[in-house]
């Protein structure tokens, strides 16, 4: 179950952004996409996630486990996205945020148990009823990642997930994230401008060449 980028090229208007990007990411492996601002890192992520919109135009193919994603809407791509800000929904409690990500159809008891278990892996046991606003930055980042994982994606896309954290939390969060990726065996793309992210998480580096 790998994530494959095949010959991706993108333009903003008439301006070319990048071209000929071909990468394959195996389950449990991380591709670190690096490059200066404006090199198209976020655009690449948007193309994979299905959020690329005018004025971006692109060609090529995105495949997940051999499934072609190009024409699927974002909600059917089974990709888990994590952004720089944790984007916890402010109107829901921590537990409700996690529940939002989970597939429906399980019993309430089972859902509750899954949420509790997820919280305990993050060292946040008993946080289910808390207001997200009352959490520290590191705690929020963990909940955000857990919410994504509980949605049972087939791949992970991380967009500068650590850049807003302080140094100590950063190290902590890198380790937590890397462990989760190993455990779930998800192919992962990590967009970052910090080489230490790639280093700490043992990721294959790919520099986006400004074309």
């Amino acid at each position: 179950m790998s994530l494959d980028l095949i010959n991706l090229s993108a333009h903003i208007g008439a301006e070319p952004l990048f071209s000929g990007v071909s990468q394959s990411i195996d389950p449990g492996h991380i591709l670190a996409v690096m490059g200066p601002s404006g090199s198209g890192k976020t655009t690449l992520l948007n193309i994979i996630g299905g959020f690329a919109a005018s004025p971006v135009r692109w060609t090529g193919e995105v495949q997940l486990a051999g499934r072609r994603l190009n024409s699927l809407p974002p909600q059917r791509r089974r990709l888990g996205l994590v952004f720089q800000t944790p984007l916890l929904f402010p109107h829901l409690s921590v537990g409700q945020n996690l529940g939002f990500g989970m597939p429906s159809g399980q019993s309430a008891v089972l859902r509750q148990a899954t949420i509790e278990q997820a919280l305990s892996t993050a060292g946040l046991t008993g946080f289910a009823d808390r207001d997200p606003e009352s959490l520290s930055g590191g705690q929020r980042a963990r909940i955000s990642l857990l919410r994504t994982l509980l949605s049972q994606p087939d791949a992970l896309l991380l967009d500068e997930p650590f850049s807003a954290l302080d140094e100590a939390t950063k190290a902590d969060m890198r380790a937590f994230t890397a462990a989760q990726i190993r455990n779930t065996a998800l192919p992962t793309i990590l967009v970052t401008h910090d080489p230490r992210d790639a280093e700490a998480m043992d990721a294959r580096r790919f520099h986006l060449p400004p074309s």
Binding site: Q75, F89, H91
Partner: peptide, 25 residues
Amino acid sequence: PHYRQVALALGRPRWQALLLVELPI
């Protein structure tokens, strides 16, 4: 706009992203 993107990426259809996330916020 990321709120919406997160909701979609979590596998929710558009109307749920609007009704369960954006409008309550």
